[in-house]
Nucleic acid binder design. Structure first.
Lengths: 333, 333
DNA sequence: GTGAAAGCGCTAACAA
DNA sequence: TTGTTAGCGCTTTCAC
């Protein structure tokens, strides 16, 4: 690919003139401009983003780290982030955390090697301390769906506890008392928080918690299937269910189908959903939307603000929970 | 971030010595090496991939272009590609074609601006001519799921026609005669090819094609739902169905559920599936696997070969179709 | 309005 | 085994 040098030579001007014309800085004789533009066209010239990065000590690249690419959830985030960066003519770099602290560390290292101007991190395995330490570094970053008090101005969060309570209340308000809850791996804080929301809503109604109704899954389809089997083997079966992950819900629905358990007649279901995946279930499951696109959007705005060293309203950075009604919940009252 | 200069200064050596130590080229006094390593550690030094790219006129970046990020299909590809590039310490850059020739052009432009060493393109909208023209360029690339005779050594393909015929035959062999087919947008070659496979299989059995059984969809859930409604309104309903896309199949199943059409008792279904998404349907739908991960794997190998200017066996580059049995097909014989 | 020259952080001859 | 020097392709002072 042609370099600026060749363009300059062909146009009979100095490299710096070409550079100025590319960047539209200053003014030039129209004749000069024309000659340079012709030369660029003729050589099919495109400035090297790499060389430019080096010269202006910023890369125009943003790193986006997620835990895994597959499953649709990531696609939503990435799509949103890419869309906005496209407008700003920035490059998006992605990396997977691979479900481990080490993987996340490596991903960030990669971003640093490429001198990304900023990161958006969906970090699950790095400790608060590590992230706080990272924040002392000069490269700005934003945490997606994670809250750390000390760096809260870099966090875009969703109140999972409140959201889970909302979902549970939705069932309670419709007369359900015996409500099951299928959680994610309880080793993760994010799963714990959802469970807490469920517990709170139950307690608020003065209902005693039945530990049999709590089943731990791993967010995968099979675990939902197994959880449902377990719940349906109980003597006192729940009349409703809160599933904290859409894939698990698919497993739950599959079990229902196979065992001829009717939803919502025999059991009502409400489920977390981040990618509108429950829309494809039959019956259509009522969901608690995990607004990952909105959050990704906020993350980009926030990162941009950090890059420009502006400050932004804290208020907008937490997205509110919303329920999307399907027909998987029956009203018992 | 510290530069090589600072490391050199701190260690009391020349920059090139540091460079050599980083790259493990040549041999050094153990004392020198130790001092340099200490300096690097102390400054938390990481070489700039950008500066390095410039110096060694190759970037270690690979561009992956897809039509869209959402939907899971892309995640599979990306995951596979990233995994392999990680091993080789290469950077992955991604871009969306946004369902237009212009979008695809822009994506490639972006890769070029960053001086990617090679591309993997899932191109749908650029013409054969444009792609052939691109192949005259110095940057090597591989076409994913697209065949162009003139540059076939750069193509990783899947025989959709054969695959579709296989799926249709699967139904025929089980005694089905009245087989519906839900296609993608017939404006796209990729949809046409699948339809041709279906037609061929039917014709081979000496069965006349019933045009009523052909319904055009757009690969989205809703279009599957609508297609099913249309097919079920026919006087002579099909006993089986070949769906050329998993999302459409979800719509089809949803319609069945709502209308109390039993699968497979009332209708048998076989479906394309690229992301194992039909596994979550109930009943579990028999699928024709679209082996996108395998293909992505092949694409990386092929691209690597091109980068090293090696040649590879053509034979491996076409992946064979495979059927994964569920319980959505009934045997009428 | 344009050119000359230095510099971004690194690598790669060529010497020593 | 190590240093010197030039150069990768661009931007950015500082002159003129």
């Amino acid at each position: 690919m042609a370099s600026i040098k060749e363009v300059a030579a062909l146009a009979g001007v100095n490299r710096s003139t070409v550079s100025r014309i590319i960047n539209g800085e200053g003014s030039f004789r129209s004749d000069t401009k024309r000659r340079v533009e012709e030369a660029m066209a003729q050589l099919d010239y495109r400035p090297s983003a790499i060389a430019r990065s080096l010269a202006k000590s910023h890369s125009n690249m943003i790193g986006l780290m997620v835990t895994y690419y597959t499953g649709g959830f990531f696609g939503q985030m990435m799509n949103q982030v890419q869309l906005e960066l496209d407008v700003q003519n920035k490059f998006l770099l992605t990396a997977q955390g691979h479900h481990s602290a080490d993987g996340e560390k490596k991903a960030i290292e990669k971003f640093k090697d490429l001198r990304c101007d900023g990161f958006i991190l969906h970090s699950r395995y790095l400790s608060d301390e590590e992230l706080i330490a990272l924040s002392k570094t000069k490269t700005p970053f934003v945490l997606l769906d994670r809250y750390i008090e000390e760096i809260k101005q870099q966090c875009v969060t969703f109140d999972h506890q409140k959201a889970s309570a909302l979902a549970t209340s939705y069932l309670l308000e419709r007369g359900h008392i015996n409500i099951g809850c299928v959680t994610g791996p309880l080793g993760r804080v994010s799963s714990q928080v959802r469970l807490t929301g469920y517990k709170n809503a139950i307690a608020e109604k003065g209902i005693a918690l039945n530990p049999d109704y709590l089943v731990e899954g791993d967010y995968e389809l099979d675990s939902g299937y197994a959880a449902m089997a377990q719940l349906m083997s109980l003597e006192q079966k729940p009349t409703a269910l809160f599933s904290t992950g859409e894939e698990m819900t698919r497993g739950i629905m599959k079990y229902c189908y196979e065992q001829q358990i009717r939803c919502p007649e025999d059991i009502s279901i409400i489920s977390y959903d981040s990618v509108n995946s429950c829309r494809g279930l039959y019956p259509q499951v009522t969901t608690l939307e995990f607004p990952i696109s909105d959050m990704a959007h906020e993350a980009v705005l926030l990162l941009n603000a950090q890059l420009k060293a502006q400050s932004r309203e804290q208020a907008q950075l937490s997205v509110s929970p919303r329920i999307q009604e399907g027909n998987s919940v029956i009203n018992l009252t």
